[in-house]
Amino acid sequence: MGQLQLWLSALEMGCFFGLLALAYYLVLVGAGFFNFAIGPYAMVGGLCTSYLVLYEEMNVWAAAAVAITAAAALAVVTELVVVRPVQRRSGGGELPALVAVAAVLFAIQQLAGYLFGYTTLPGQNVLTFEPVSVGDTVVQPSTLVLLAFTVVAFAGLAVWIRSTRTGRLLRAVGDSTHAARLLGLPVNRVRLIAFVLSGLLAGITGLLFAPKAGVSSLSGLSWALSGFLAMVVGGTGSVWAPLFGGLLLGAVEVFVPYYFGGQSHVYGLLIVALLFFALKPSGLFVRRVRA
């Protein structure tokens, strides 16, 4: 594999992680909550599309529409049925929300396995055109589509957050839900929008990434972890931060096994996580403020 091919692969992984991290970012900023179910939403986006195309002989675009809708619907259910009641009951406590989201993650994984089978299915291409050659390196259509979507998604959300009323409300609501409620801001609506957007984003991301290595009902968990790490590494300072985190992680994911072989990328991710959390002991992630 040439150097260019490696870099391209790292870029693709990075964009994938960055998009997942962006979905995390939306829910974190809007609802102050790490939604680990993002990974399973993405898995549903990919797996449902492949299943419908391969077993129900549906048109790719129709299948994709169904899958993305399903991912968004799962996000809505997560917020309305699980997160909101649990957070209301437990007050500020983090543990009940964490256990609840673990249960959601597990349930979606099992549901997808039950509906679509437990095997790995190949991903489906929404657009098919001739691979592009750059020197001796061939760029697959699926890669190009993913890169293009990354640019569109990040730019679109950046504009949305900066220039729409709901986008601007997002941060206000997430920073101080209590104050926002007192001010009469539509807290619940903004939160729901954040969840829907993250579900849509995750669904599309999973669907576009699936051609790279296939997708199974178990993919959701590792995707959830990668997206979470990318978001934490990037930080929440700007909409683009998740992309930086994603690209860094993508490089680790691709170059570490290239030089160290085997399953070393798992060690790489663990080391990145530990190093980052150790070097930034009270930086980005201590969000709880005591009165």
Binding site: F34, F36, L98, A102, L225, F228, V232
Partner: peptide, 9 residues
């Protein structure tokens, strides 16, 4: 969440 993620990894 941070502890859960790192220990999972």
């Amino acid at each position: 969440f941070f502890l859960a993620a790192v220990t999972l990894l």
